[in-house]
């Protein structure tokens, strides 16, 4: 992890050679309409680093998983309202709550933090098991954390029951070329 520390200290992007430590913070309502907003905003945030299509898709998927978890599990707004004749945002079945999304670019490394003040996770390692879900009635796959782990380089989860959850993810950009040549 020494290499990563150097990048953080310098804050210089190896691709563009530009010093960059951009940050972005979004705070939005915990409703399903905002899932696409969150991932599109992060995609725009990383675009100065010219990520490959694959990196971009990985980041969008991981953000979508983390944000969806906060909405469904943190605040228990279970159902997606993306049907014809969308449910209005102020619908009584939607519980109030905010999701905070924080992004930082330190050199080539993208740091993403997704935080909610929802109900928290009692057993984090169980929650991270593939196919484990506390809400089988929703026909969800239980693959959320598995996807975040697969598509990002580093994943950390911090949670306290009744207080909320923070998911921290890191991804180093611009590694596709040497991964490709290794295969």
């Amino acid at each position: 992890m020494v290499a990563e520390k150097e990048i953080n200290n310098e804050g210089v992007c190896s691709q563009t050679g530009v010093y960059m430590k951009n940050e972005m913070e979004l705070i939005f309502d915990a409703i399903s309409n905002n899932e696409s907003f969150a991932r599109v905003a992060v995609a725009a945030f990383v675009s100065p680093l010219n990520p490959t299509l694959e990196e971009m898709a990985d980041i969008k998927t991981a953000v979508s998983e983390a944000v969806t978890n906060s909405i469904i599990h943190g605040y228990e707004n279970l159902y997606g309202y993306g049907r014809r004749g969308e449910v209005p945002v102020a619908h009584p079945s939607i519980k109030p709550g905010k999701v905070r999304l924080h992004c930082m670019l330190g050199g080539d490394v993208l740091h993403i933090e997704v935080e909610d003040k929802g109900k928290g996770i009692p057993d984090i390692s169980q929650a991270m098991e593939p196919l484990f879900t506390t809400k089988p009635q929703l026909e969800r796959s239980g693959m959320g954390f598995a996807f975040m782990e697969a598509f990002m380089d580093d994943l950390e989860v911090e949670s306290e029951v009744g207080k909320g959850t923070i998911v921290r993810m890191k991804k180093k950009l611009g590694t596709d070329s040497w991964i490709g040549s290794e295969e």
Partner: peptide, 13 residues
């Protein structure tokens, strides 16, 4: 175009 939680329940139904 985008398959996420927002659209999923409608598609399942």
């Amino acid at each position: 175009r985008e398959v996420d939680h927002h659209r999923a329940s409608y598609i399942c139904e």
